[in-house]
Design a protein around this nucleic acid. Structure first.
Lengths: 266, 266
DNA sequence: CCCGAATATGCTTATTTCTGCCGTTTTACG
DNA sequence: CGTAAAACGGCAGAAATAAGCATATTCGGG
């Protein structure tokens, strides 16, 4: 019966290499902060026994921590950040995947910090050849694995809560940049108040990023639409794209489309 | 049977040289992120054994990673990074712990990239209240969890192998810094050749760090003493401290002590 | 022009690895 | 406790691999 399943969905997943499968497991683990055996078994179209063997071997290499029912990251340091990422992994991943579609080869892209932007970094297609400029150390580390991406990190004082560079040094560096595209995570999005965020320093950096890019993309989950955070980044007129979830009702997005912004539902 | 067909066609089409075939393999690997032996055998009209030999040789040159059934791109740099961190955890941790003893409250410290420096970051006492300036995103991330450390990250182009910022932007930022202490990982340490490292850009950054600090500490494991790497960072006279393993015999360290450097055995 | 070494390739055979399945034991949780 | 899920160990078929051998091609020197 498992055979039938395999046959029915027999995409070329049959050609999945063992080592490739294990890399995938580690990738998911890094992205979501945990892996579950039934989910992996379904995703990878292999038996749960095989997944257990994979996890056992990976744990033997010290690459993850095996627990009942799945596995967790071995390093506790990434766990916090990963846990936060776990909040809405589905929606964020979908938004991120859609956002990568706006990037074309040989572009220079300013990528914001934050968990949504990190998802974008992790979902960049392997063939995509771009330069990514980011104030976020975790994003820089994540992109170091990408074979075709050149990474530039913006220096500055590290704002620990969001793990991004902020301050005068960051803004100085930004002034020397002319990017094709800028992808921002936002704290709030409002037809009249525009783009806003939770921290003053972050707001300055986001504004600098907008000023250094030809086109601006805002990444936002559903619940942030038509809300405002304390610090204003800039008016809606600076946005060219909004990428959000597909569940958002049309009438909520109408004001943004009327403002000339292309809205992409993921 | 299949044999004859292949032979006949292969003689005609055999403008395909061995080296050409291998370049094709690498091209496919770069494009698809993996190669499968049966597919390559069919594409290239050679036996699977030949493909296996090709992959074996290419793996020997470090151009790909051989796995059961095919090959994958070489392990991403962070895998190397993680693996390197496990290499000598004992010695490195001891060196790192000893190095933290050189740091006092309210200092500004330049902390190099690399696995040894990362150990220093992870061993900073919780009560220590300092500013850490670093070109290494992983170190910045690690220090974000520290309650009393202010982190400043140096921007620049990310050198993926070592996960540190390099380039003119990094050096520019360094010129605006006056630090009390600078902690360097070294590639080699030699009484006459001084401090050296494996990468030219890294050497520039290390030199910039030395120039921006009042005192300089070199962190080195035993096997690097009295060796030299290709790129010179600077003479021994710029060093104030060397932190190394306790197992190093006295006579090896004598030249450094005679040069006025305080040697600390951890 | 011919011979022989070096290389490259394909084939055969023995060995190893991978994977799903099954039965048993252990763990998590009400 | 008791139940269901999860984990472990062993087994067998299939695939992949390594090792050794045979053949073909190339190249250099008599």
């Amino acid at each position: 019966m498992q055979n039938q399943v395999i046959l029915r969905t027999s995409r070329k997943i049959n050609a999945m290499l063992t080592a490739e499968r294990r890399r995938y497991i580690l990738e998911v683990l890094g992205r979501d902060g945990k892996v579950l055996i039934p989910a992996l078994s379904a995703d990878l179209r292999v038996s749960e026994d095989t997944v257990r063997r994979d996890l056992r071997d990976l744990a033997g290499e010290g690459l993850l921590q095996r627990v009942h029912g799945g596995a967790l990251p071995r390093s506790p340091s990434t766990a916090n950040y990963a846990a936060r990422q776990q909040q809405a992994p589905d929606a964020k991943a979908r938004i991120a995947r859609a956002a990568t579609g706006l990037i074309t080869n040989d572009q220079v892209v300013l990528l914001d910090g934050g968990t949504t932007a990190l998802q974008v970094a992790q979902h960049l297609p392997h063939e995509l050849r771009v330069t990514i400029i980011t104030p976020s150390p975790p994003i820089a580390v994540a992109l170091a694995e990408h074979p075709n991406v050149e990474v530039v990190i913006l220096g500055g004082k590290l704002y620990k809560h969001a793990l991004v560079s902020v301050g005068a040094a960051t803004l100085d560096s930004l002034r020397m940049v002319r990017a094709d595209l800028c992808m921002l995570g936002v704290g709030g999005l409002h037809p009249e108040l525009g783009v806003s965020t939770d921290d003053l320093e972050e707001a300055h950096v986001k504004r600098g990023m907008i000023d250094s890019a030809a086109e601006v993309v805002a990444l936002t989950s559903a619940e942030k639409i038509n809300t405002a955070s304390p610090y204003i980044v800039g008016p809606l007129s600076q946005l060219d794209y909004i990428v959000t979830e597909s569940e958002v009702p049309d009438h909520l997005l109408r004001p943004y489309e009327n403002a000339g912004i292309a809205v992409i539902r993921a």
